[in-house]
Deep mutational scan, measured.
Amino acid sequence: GLTEEQKQEIREAFDLFDTDGSGTIDAKELKVAMRALGFEPKKEEIKKMISEIDKDGSGTIDFEEFLTMMTA
């Protein structure tokens, strides 16, 4: 499992990506986040990433899903 410290770091990354503070990361926010990390993702790639992570089919990534992605 994760230490509380690791969870906190992932939470901070999540909050950075969640620019509108909605508690979820949408495609637009993910794209901005990827760019910040030096990637140039295409729209299809973003969609694919979200569909792989987005277990509940909401079209957005919540913290639990993000946590799973970061620790996979």
Rank of each mutant, 00 (worst) to 15 (best):
R35C: 15
E40M: 12
K42E: 13
V32I: 15
K7I: 11
L37Q: 03
I10M: 12
G57K: 08
E5R: 09
I61R: 00
Q8E: 07
K42P: 07
D56V: 09
A13Q: 06
L30Q: 00
I61Q: 00
K48C: 14
K7R: 10
D26Y: 11
Q6C: 13
V32D: 15
T24C: 10
E29A: 11
D56I: 10
A33S: 02
L67M: 05
E9G: 10
K28L: 06
S22E: 01
D54N: 08
E52N: 10
G59K: 07
I10Y: 10
D62W: 03
R35I: 13
M70A: 04
G59L: 07
G21K: 08
M69R: 03
E12V: 10
K42N: 14
E44V: 04
I61Y: 04
I25H: 00
D54V: 14
E65N: 09
F14H: 00
S58A: 04
T24R: 12
I46K: 01
D20S: 08
G59E: 05
D62C: 10
R35P: 03
K48P: 03
G21A: 07
R35W: 09
M69I: 12
K42W: 09
G23F: 02
M34K: 01
P41G: 07
R11V: 01
S58Y: 07
G38Q: 03
F14Q: 00
P41Q: 03
T60E: 07
F66E: 00
E65Q: 15
F14W: 06
L67C: 08
F17C: 12
G21P: 00
K55N: 08
D15P: 01
S51W: 09
E9N: 13
S51L: 13
E12D: 11
F63T: 00
E29P: 01
I61M: 04
T71L: 14
F66M: 01
E64M: 07
L67I: 07
I10W: 07
A72F: 11
F63P: 00
T71K: 07
E4G: 06
F66N: 00
I53T: 04
T19S: 11
G21L: 03
K28T: 08
G1I: 11
F14S: 00
E5V: 10
L30H: 00
T24P: 01
K55P: 07
K28D: 08
M69W: 13
